[in-house]
Design a protein around this nucleic acid. Structure first.
Length: 462
RNA sequence: GUGGGAUUAGCUCAGCUGGUUAGAGCAUCGGAUUGUGAUUCCGAGGGUCGUGGGUUCGAGUCCCAUAUUCCACCCCA
């Protein structure tokens, strides 16, 4: 009988325990910061009704949705009525519409769950991945001030994740649309198309984008294309220069003027929120591909690793849940793709293998003394130390090898010599040192050692 | 959905224009006096060369098909 090949489908991330600990450490940092800024947790089911999920989108998302069907329904040949969620924003819209009367507005929620997309496999692209979303949903209206609060949360998270310098890149779609309108590109659909092209400028290069804009189907006159290219090439270098960029735009139509006013308020509040100006800039080429963004848009780029692209992005949308309720529910949100972020940080060498969550291991020196070892482990656990006991007699060398591979730092030995002296030997696998402590002092000493070890960076870089 | 690469040991790969029993590094397992790992030394196991067909005296190597996988575009986190 041939064995089935043990494998996973492409596009899923599966980690070894120490990497899983590093991933969870990252997730805890994100969660802690979400909560620190006053966001509330929710979870929604992985499976939703297809008519709920497939409202807003047309071709592209539908192509990527996994439909879910019971075998019975499949055999009857029914069309699937269920599907796996492909993001957390659509389920949020459904959630808010469904629970509208039980929620307090503005509703500030965070959500960290897996989503599913039928992507073709590629590096850093996953079919199952974690999204960590925060959104603020208002009833009828929501102040643009919230658009400044979200980047402040993101700043707090990435600073704590210790991934080096990064910049929050901001823009406002009203500025882009208003500018295009002033230039004479007035058709809404064409504005969208131009937005999408302009958004690729950092990836494809300015020359290629200009080429696309002047060619079919855009066929923009050279002067228009040049004006657009000159406009979107602008980046601010400081808080004041960002304000000056806005000032220099002038006016001309209500869309443009509204965008400038919004952007100015966001920048001002970002500063007031205490985000140092080195961490944010105004970038007129940021547009985002998604259709539903209407105002502020943002992306986050790691300074040392621009090739990674945006590690966190989002923006402002009007009327999130128009498909489910007649209430007007505007919102602003950002999403961190945690799976891709972790994967790319690891590729870039910014995240190494974590230490084990097991803090101490009691070695087995004599099979007959097992009850003694169990008692010792009980003491440690009662003191809050994560402890593992060797339950099978093995050569001591093997036990050390096991501890080393498992990433366990402290190995405790209580054998004939130690019993006679009333001590426990502690071997520090990292420092390659060994010392003895009185049994009564054991938990206290070990706690000190572990605390010192915690004070060092959580994660060893390779 | 459109286009391009790749497939040889658990992993990363070598194998020149077809020529005997297909190799290396890492990993795994065992040993180097019975309470000390990761370093060193010695040894061992492990492959129907993705699958099916064809050309040939002879195919890992050439041709066709198929599967799988990766990359670029599209789109996105």
């Amino acid at each position: 009988m041939s064995l089935a090949k043990a494998r996973t489908m492409p596009g899923v991330m599966e980690l070894l325990p120490l990497d899983q600990i590093a991933f969870q450490t990252m997730m805890e940092t994100i969660r802690r910061n979400f909560e620190r800024f006053g966001f509330l947790p929710i979870e929604t089911p992985a499976i939703e009704f297809t008519d709920v999920l497939l409202t807003k989108s047309g071709g592209e998302t539908e192509r990527q949705v996994y439909f879910v069907q019971s075998t019975g329904s499949l055999q009857k040949g029914d069309d699937p009525t269920l599907a796996l969620r492909f993001d957390l924003t659509v389920p949020l819209a459904r959630y808010v519409a469904e629970h509208e009367h039980d929620l307090s507005f503005p509703f500030r929620r965070y959500q960290m769950q897996r989503v599913y997309r039928g992507e073709s496999a590629q590096r850093g692209r996953f079919r199952e991945f974690y999204q960590c979303d925060i959104d603020v949903i208002g009833k009828d209206q929501l102040s643009v001030r919230y658009d400044a609060e979200l980047p402040a949360v993101i700043h707090s998270i990435f600073r704590e994740l210790n991934v080096g310098a990064f910049t929050l890149q901001l823009n406002n779609r009203k500025i882009l649309r208003g500018f295009f309108e002033r230039l004479g590109v007035t058709d809404g659909e064409q504005q969208m198309q131009v937005l999408r092209e302009v958004d690729k400028i950092d990836k494809r290069g300015a020359a290629a984008v200009r080429q696309t804009l002047t060619a079919e189907p855009f066929s923009l006159p050279a002067e228009q294309a040049d004006a657009i290219m000159a406009f979107v090439a602008q980046r601010s270098s400081s808080h004041d220069s960002a304000l000056a960029m806005l000032e220099a735009l002038g006016g001309g139509n209500t869309t443009l003027e509204a965008g400038i006013a919004e952007m100015r308020e966001v920048l001002t509040l970002l500063k007031a929120l205490g985000v140092p100006e080195a961490f944010y800039l105004l970038n007129f080429s940021i547009a985002r591909g998604l259709d539903y963004y209407t105002g502020t848009v943002f992306e986050t780029i790691l300074t040392a690793h621009p090739e990674i692209g945006s590690v966190c992005s989002g923006g402002r949308y009007e009327n999130l849940a128009s498909h489910y309720t007649k209430s007007r529910l505007p919102g602003v949100g950002v999403s961190i793709g945690a799976t891709r972020l972790f994967y790319q940080l690891r590729e870039a060498g910014l995240i190494g293998t974590a230490r084990s969550s097991v803090q101490a291991m009691v070695a087995m020196l004599d099979d007959a003394d097992l009850p003694l070892y169990l008692e010792l482990a009980g003491q440690l656990r009662a003191a809050g130390i994560n402890t593992e006991v060797q339950l099978e007699p093995k050569k001591l060398g093997k036990q050390f090898q096991y501890a080393d591979r498992a990433g366990i730092r402290f190995v405790l030995m209580l054998g004939t010599d130690e019993k006679a002296k009333g001590v426990v030997a502690i071997k520090d696998m990292w420092r390659q040192e060994q010392f003895e402590v009185e049994r009564a002092e054991l938990t206290r000493t070990l706690r000190v050692e572990i605390e010192q070890s915690e004070a060092m960076p959580k994660v060893k870089t390779p």
